[in-house]
Design a binder for these strands. Sequence first.
RNA 1: GCGCCUGUAGCUCAGCUGGAUAGAGCAACGCCCUUCUAAGGCGUGGGUAGCAGGUUCGAGUCCUGCCAGGCGCACCA
Length: 569
Amino acid sequence: MSLKEQICQALQHTVEQLLADVQPAKMPQVQLTRPKVREHGDYAVNIAMPLAGLLQQNPRQVATSILEKTTFPDAVLKTDIAGPGFINITLKQGGEADMLLHILAQGSTYGCVETDKAKSVCLEFVSANPTGPMHVGHGRGAVVGDALANLLSARGYAVHKEYYINDAGSQIAVLANSVWLRMQELQGISIRLPESAYPGEYIIDIARTILAKSSFEYFSTLDEDNCLQEIGLLAVAANMAMIEQDLKVIGITFDQYFSEKTLHASGKVDQLIEKLENDGLIYTGTLPPPKGKEISDYQAVEQQLFRTTAFGDDVDRPLRKQDGTATYFAADIAYHHDKSQRGFQYLIDIWGADHGGYVTRVQSSMKALTGLAEQPEVLLIQMVNLTRNGQPFKMSKRAGTFVALSDVVEEVGKDAVRFNFMTRRIESQFDFDLEDAKAKSSENPVYYVQYAHARICAVLNKAKSEGVEIVDVDQVDTSLLSSEEAQDLIKILLAYPDMLDTAANRREPYRIATFTMQLAATLHRFYHKNRVLGVENELMQARILLLKATSQVLKNALSLLGVNAPEKM
RNA sequence: GCGCCUGUAGCUCAGCUGGAUAGAGCAACGCCCUUCUAAGGCGUGGGUAGCAGGUUCGAGUCCUGCCAGGCGCACCA
């Protein structure tokens, strides 16, 4: 048990004594926080304030009685009551420095907890349509999703990463048609691209790929339906290969690619609709015209409707189109139902903000099917606004109507893209200036953090090359790490597991990025004021130990983000 | 019109689910390399937290109403 936990437990014990007649469920929980100001000690506790109300006493008085009744661990130097009733706890000099040994002993698992098989989670992210390369917005979701997967794994979840391929429906027909036209064009046949066709140059690449494998003559002998169907299959495969390549470049892989088509083929969509019918959740009716949008050719049609309003939705949703085929929505709830039946404890989806209107209907549907609320948990990622020199920048040549992720990665580099995408909360829209990211690359936060790691390595390598004999960790006198900067560094290193825990519970991997920036800043400050090599041996040994622990934590945190921790820069 | 998200320094963003004097990076200005990586450090300037109310011992954080921006709102996916 860490020192922090020991203190916390001691206080909690006292609180429970003071509130003997309060029900356990209502018992206030002691929380230790790190004060911003050094004068406020190493830990601060505000428990006296909520207790004051319950006990009808003033907070400072309550704090006094808490302190009288609590036995603290030896490492606690003193306690004070401050301000309106904070309890400030100051530790003995170097009281926590021993924990550095713990960090080094844990190594790459420092901050992690053992996998708990009961905490299985299916994390769905990216799921970009197989009709073009990934764009920048997909990239943000991909990077956040991957980091969240790493984070949850580190905190004991058994994580399954899944990509849902929308390989059914009319968009695939459009894709097939676009590719077929380009194939004809490559044969020297003059064509006219209809407005509905995909304009990007990547379509030509796909046409070329298909022609390299099968002859044009083969397709021209097929009747139109078969021809387009076959091209559709090949085009989706080519697209997915392209997307997997885009993902690989930023270091992301999936455990499973789940095809929408297989849901229809296996009859799961029909079965689902049947089940809902049996449950009496389906009726035939018409929906009111949508508001806020002018639709010239609106016609009310009778449809098979799913009574999602009974489970919290705003309006009932159609499961079959006029022609009787299943809607995208029907397949999507069949998909989520399937995930749930595969036995995952948690379902988490990462979607773009443009799917925000979709959350309620999927959750309502799942509630109807499983009885569980808030399933799936949906994380909506806001849009990325790409600019170049402050001017909006909306498309790249290859992709046609949007900026391809691979172009941006090529321009700014994988680590910079990944790190930058991780420094903001997903709820905030992201302004990303390409020229800034390139021109100021040396001032980029990612380099600031990586530089801290490289710097430590430089010192440690120099020590090695100078033949410094590094003693065993248990021979090191960590109480020598008494400088303000060293103490700050130790504190932040010890805060790492707590930070991870919060980040995992709240599904907020961006906290890791913020943490690494703070840690880097603290390291740089330490470096400037505390010489490591060339000082008296025992002190040097202690500082080397601190550097090793710091580089370990930096490496661990960066690896969760999928960013390199370079030894040299 | 309705729903979701956002509004904090000139710019881009944090702020550990309500705590003590609101913080970083960039941009501006000054200082620090004969000593471990100056991709760094130190310092200065820069804030009516969109506006107005409310709850609370205490609000950037919670509630309500406005204002502004983004996204979405049938038979597409």
